[in-house]
Write a protein that binds this DNA or RNA. Structure first.
Lengths: 196, 196
DNA sequence: ATGTCCTTTCAGAATTTTCTGAAAGAACAA
DNA sequence: TTGTTCTTTCAGAAAATTCTGAAAGGACAT
């Protein structure tokens, strides 16, 4: 139940970071411990390792399960419930993105849309709506990108990330090779369509 | 000093969201108000509009300035200090990314690196280091991508985001046109270099 | 049924964070 | 200098969150 200094250092740092991202410290630590352990752990062991009460661990695990970041596992011949993180880091990133999207981004887009269709009651409101429109469009663009690249296989996604800004160069090339087709996601063509 | 219902709805939602991202609710509201107002506001007016104590506003603005999200402005012929957000939404995204990077991502990478060079004291530690390595490499890849695309002009960045996963198709094309050159960022070639 | 071993729930304690009012500081005018 | 108008700081009040122990719930064996 004693953590090695290595594990402890990681767990502590992760807890600290978690608390800066709206995740409570102990939940972050539980997650970090599960991640670094790389094997299913029973709640009791987590409680002992981290010096939390059993009930706190139970709450933390419930929270993590609701985020789909941890899943329950029954080991054969063992009555105790064990918990694990998916072992692929990329899966973790995907889940995190999905969940944040569903919990925070989508509701925000929804609020923004509601406010954008409301009748402005003053010149002030009209200007405010312009700002909201900008924010709405930006978020929608980011979300669209995320949606689109999340469909890629991890290997392709890695390639895309490694390519980085080089894409822009390729884009120019593309415009000279019409055979590739022009259509892109939804109604938004890739080619410039705004004044320069 | 009365907020229009439109502004109020936005400010309240933004405050709520802020608190889920590790930003305190009132700081989020102050920021939202400055953003949607689109003009420099004095601290007093913020305090009155949001019903916060003057000192709370002072603290909030200090925090926002430390994040570089808000700047102080002196209006000519007015002794009172006024505050504004940059008016370009993309600038906001860039600043947010930079700051999160400096405050959370870089320190995390540093911890991970320290733990990775430490001598493992057990088989358990060795396996833990493998997990840390995966996480380290993933973060470094994401950070590298962000670094790279942040150099783009906003217009180009928008193009790149609209393109989304289409990039992968272009990539294949690229591999058939060697004249474009092969080098990419740093020592990491884009082409596959792992077994399939 | 009862006992064992595990689980979650939840009221309230403990802790942390946030917010305020009072005081002090700064800049300027007269 | 003093007065005015603005500012920030900070100790402690207020509020929110987190954590715990006790109790209750559930699954299974005997």
């Amino acid at each position: 139940m004693e953590l090695s200094p290595l594990t402890e250092a990681f767990v502590m740092h992760f807890g600290e970071m978690g608390s800066r991202w709206g995740i409570n410290r102990t939940v972050g630590q539980i997650y970090a411990l599960l991640y670094i352990s790389g094997r299913p752990l029973p709640a009791d062991e987590i409680a002992q390792s981290l010096n939390f009460s059993r009930s706190n661990v139970s709450m933390g695990l419930k929270e993590l399960q609701s985020w789909q970041l941890v899943r329950l596992q029954h080991l054969p011949g063992n009555r105790r419930e064990h918990f694990t993180t998916p072992d692929d880091v990329w899966q973790i990133v995907r889940t995190l993105a999905e969940q944040r999207r569903a919990r925070e981004v989508d509701p925000t887009l929804s609020v923004l849309r509601d406010l954008l269709v409301a009748q402005p009651r003053s010149e002030e409101d009209r200007q405010a709506q312009e700002k909201l429109r900008e924010m709405h469009d930006l978020i929608e663009l980011l979300v669209g990108w995320a949606d689109d690249v999340s469909k890629l296989e991890t290997k392709e996604l890695v390639q895309l990330l490694k390519l980085g800004s080089k894409v822009v160069g390729l884009l120019e090339l593309k415009s000279r090779l019409p055979l590739l087709g022009r259509g892109t996601r939804g109604a938004a063509p890739v080619e410039d369509h705004e004044q320069d």
